[in-house]
Simulated scan of single mutants.
Amino acid sequence: MQPTVTAISSSATHDFSKTVRAAITLRTGTGVEGDAHRGETVRHRSRVARDPSAPNLRQVHLIHSELFTRLAAAGHQVRPGDLGENVTTRGVELLDLPTGTQLLLGADALIEITGLRNPCRQIDAFQPGLLKEVVSRDAAGELIRLAGVMAVVLADGVVRPGDPIEVRLPAEPHHRLIPV
């Protein structure tokens, strides 16, 4: 199956969910044009409070649409943009990609995966019980985070639903994703 963009979303305000759009424009080094999280330095409120000069490693948030199917089986109705992602994908195992993987979205937009999204309690305000569905522990007691990945923009481009995704793995050794 060809990896594909299934939906794109953005929001000019710091709301939990984002509005589904017909297209978004990614800007090198800053993120999604018109999105509240766009910038060279951190824009997520909790991170700004800690260090407003820190680099923004969370310019673009991606979630695999396969997560929505899993959540539906647990009784949750989640649609693209609901969890605050900018890009919803199908056919690419986002959570299994190593740090530094590049994704070409459509013809021109190039992003680099920086790490995992670490969901917070706000997710339970959106739908009670959802946090335990996207954060759990494995047999060894390690946290498993399912709420998508974060990326930075390496090259400008317009992204639309239906655009193909090309996965470009970094040179080995590969490093597993950690929260950013």
Rank of each mutant, 00 (worst) to 15 (best):
N118M: 11
Q127K: 14
A139T: 08
R121S: 14
D138F: 07
R145C: 01
R117T: 08
S136I: 01
C120D: 06
R137E: 06
A147Y: 04
N118Y: 02
S136G: 13
S136P: 03
C120P: 12
A155I: 00
I113P: 10
A139D: 14
K132G: 03
L154Q: 10
A109P: 12
R145I: 02
A125N: 13
D124T: 07
L146I: 00
I144A: 01
I144V: 15
L154M: 12
V158M: 13
P119L: 08
A155P: 01
G157I: 11
I144D: 00
A151T: 04
A125I: 09
R145D: 01
L154I: 09
L131M: 12
A147V: 01
G129Y: 09
G115Q: 05
R121T: 11
R145P: 03
R121F: 13
A109M: 12
V153G: 03
A140T: 12
D108E: 15
V152Q: 13
L130F: 08
R117P: 04
D138Y: 10
V134T: 07
F126R: 09
V135T: 10
G148H: 08
A147F: 03
A140K: 12
R121L: 09
A139R: 14
G141W: 05
Q122P: 00
I123A: 04
D138R: 10
G129N: 04
E133F: 04
S136M: 06
L146D: 10
I123N: 04
G148A: 09
N118K: 10
Q122Y: 02
E112G: 01
E133T: 00
A151P: 14
I144G: 02
V158R: 15
I113Y: 06
V153W: 07
A155T: 09
E133H: 14
N118F: 02
L154W: 02
V158Y: 00
R117L: 06
Q127R: 15
G115C: 08
L143E: 12
I144H: 01
L131P: 06
D124A: 07
A109Y: 05
I123R: 05
A109H: 07
L143Y: 13
E112Q: 14
K132Q: 14
